[in-house]
């Protein structure tokens, strides 16, 4: 079965991205396919490349990147939600003349249409709300 996942909750303040990660890990281990993970609302903050996780805590971001790399899963961040929260790639940093880029390179900036595309391409679409 092909799964799509949406993460809406903030990475540190809510359990959403950690729960979604456990779900994705279990689905892939059971032989399912994960088409795309779409980060929206405060969920986009998982893509912030300027965060530091305390050494004695797990890094949900690092775990997502490792999982996505191992299984070829796209980590997609909504551009409208991202820009409002200070998540910018090099391209947006130049376009808006900002002082720095903050997006981790493992994530891609996409439009909201990619969420609807993920809905269309997946047998099941699972939302991890805030």
């Amino acid at each position: 079965m092909i799964f799509g996942i949406a993460v809406h909750g903030a990475p540190y303040g809510s359990e959403a991205s950690a729960s979604a990660l456990r779900f994705a890990t279990a689905a892939l281990a059971a032989g399912h396919t994960l088409h795309r993970v779409f980060f929206y609302h405060d969920g986009v903050n998982l893509a912030n490349g300027l965060t530091v996780t305390p050494r004695d805590e797990p890094s949900t971001q690092a775990d997502w990147i490792a999982l996505a790399g191992a299984h070829g899963v796209e980590l997609a961040v909504c551009i409208a939600a991202a820009l409002k929260r200070g998540l910018v790639s090099d391209a947006e940093r130049e376009r808006y003349d900002l002082q720095a880029a903050s997006l981790h390179p493992a994530f891609s900036i996409v439009g909201l249409g990619q969420m609807i595309d993920a809905v269309g391409c997946s047998d099941r679409f699972v939302t991890f709300a805030s």
Partner: peptide
């Protein structure tokens, strides 16, 4: 933001 995704 939820309504914006619905419009899309």
């Amino acid at each position: 933001e939820a309504l914006e995704s619905i419009l899309v």
